[in-house]
Design a protein around this nucleic acid. Structure first.
Lengths: 170, 170
DNA sequence: CAGCATGATGTGATAATATATCAGGATGCC
DNA sequence: GGCATCCTGATATATTATCACATCATGCTG
C-alpha cells in the first residue's frame, strides 16, 4: 500500500498529497495500533485492554465516529455492555495524546493516522457521506496561527474543518 | 462609536483590524437589529416578534451563547417559558441567512456583526473567558478553500475556530 | 366575509451527546 | 505482600438537538 501524506478516507483509496514534504510513519491496521500504543506508553500512560479495544474500534471506522458509535462497536466486540463514560474518558485521553482527534463540527472522533507527529489538523468533512479527509499543510496552519496571534490572541489549538462535498460525492 | 472590521468582544472594546480593507455596516444595538431584520426580510423571510426576541437575546450576550442560554434569556425577557425547539428553529434560520453564526467548537451561536456581508468567518475563542473574537481575512479564507479544492473536495462552509487565550486572559 | 393555504410557533416527547461521582478492581512499585 | 495510584464500572444526571403534530396567525381568494 502506498504511503501518502493525506490520509483520505476510506483508508485504502487515498489520492493526493498536498504541501506535505516530510515523511511520516503513516500506519494502518496493526502498525497503526502499535504506533498508537507506543505514543501512549511513551507519554507515561498505560495501554490497557480497554484502551486497545477503544482504539481498535475507532480505527475500524472509515469516518469520524461518535463516542456512542465507538461504545457500540466496543460492546459488540467484547460481547458485553461497556459504559459510554469509560469510552469518553479514553477518547479524551487519546485526543490529549494525539492518537485521535475530535472533529468538532461532527461531534465525533477519528484515529490519527500518524501518531507521534504533531500537526495542526485540517479536515475536509463530506456532508453527504460523512467521511473526513485529513490534510496537513503546515504553512497554512502557520498562517492561521499568525493571524490569530496578530490580534494578541494566543492560539492553542486551531480547529479547521472544511464542510462540503468530497470528490466521490460530487 | 468607532466602526472597526474586527468585532472583538466585548463589543465596545475592539482593538484592531486585520487584512480587512473594505467597509462594512458594522452595527451594534438598534442598528444591528435593524440590519438583521433587513437581511432577513430581503431574503423573503418574516421578521416576527419571536425572531426579534431571539435576535435581541443573542446579540445581548458578549460571548457565544448556547441555544439554551438564548432560550433562558428570551424566557426571562418575555416572562414566559419559551420552548427550546422554537429557539433552535430560529437560530438555524439566522445561521442560514447569515445574521448569526454557529461556533461549532462551543456548541453555541453568536450574532453576526455585519449581516449582508458574506465572509468565511474565523473565530478566536478564548478557553478561559469564553469570549470569541471574529476575524475576517478573505485572503486566508481563500487559501483554505483552495487547499481543500486542490484535493477534489468542494468546500461549502469552512469552519475555522482557533481555541486559545485572548489577550485579556493572557 | 368565509374558507383556505401557508408559514410560524407551541407542546410534548425523545434522541444524542457529555459529565459527575464514587466504589471497587487492577497495576506498578517497593 | 502491601501500599499508592491509576483505571474501570455503575449509576445518575446534565446538556444539546430533533421530531411529530397541534394550534395559531396572516394574508389571499372566491
Amino acid at each position: 500500500m502506498p504511503r501518502l501524506a493525506v490520509s483520505a478516507i476510506p483508508p485504502d483509496s487515498v489520492a493526493m498529497a498536498i504541501h506535505h514534504d516530510h515523511d511520516h510513519d503513516v500506519s494502518s491496521g496493526a502498525a497503526l495500533v502499535a504506533a498508537a500504543e507506543l505514543a501512549l506508553v511513551t507519554s507515561g500512560e498505560q495501554w490497557t485492554s480497554m484502551r486497545a479495544a477503544v482504539f481498535a474500534a475507532l480505527s475500524g471506522f472509515d469516518r469520524p465516529a461518535s463516542a456512542y458509535d465507538v461504545t457500540e462497536a466496543v460492546s459488540q466486540a467484547q460481547g458485553r455492555r461497556v459504559a459510554a463514560n469509560s469510552v469518553y474518558r479514553i477518547l479524551d485521553l487519546f485526543v490529549a495524546n494525539n492518537i485521535a482527534t475530535r472533529v468538532e463540527s461532527a461531534n465525533a472522533y477519528i484515529a490519527n493516522a500518524h501518531p507521534g507527529c504533531q500537526h495542526d489538523c485540517i479536515f475536509l468533512v463530506c456532508d453527504a457521506c460523512g467521511r473526513a479527509a485529513h490534510v496537513d499543510d503546515d504553512q497554512l496552519s502557520a498562517r492561521i496561527r499568525e493571524t490569530a496571534a496578530a490580534t494578541g490572541f494566543r492560539p492553542e489549538k486551531p480547529v479547521v474543518e472544511v464542510r462540503g462535498r468530497c470528490a466521490a460525492c460530487g
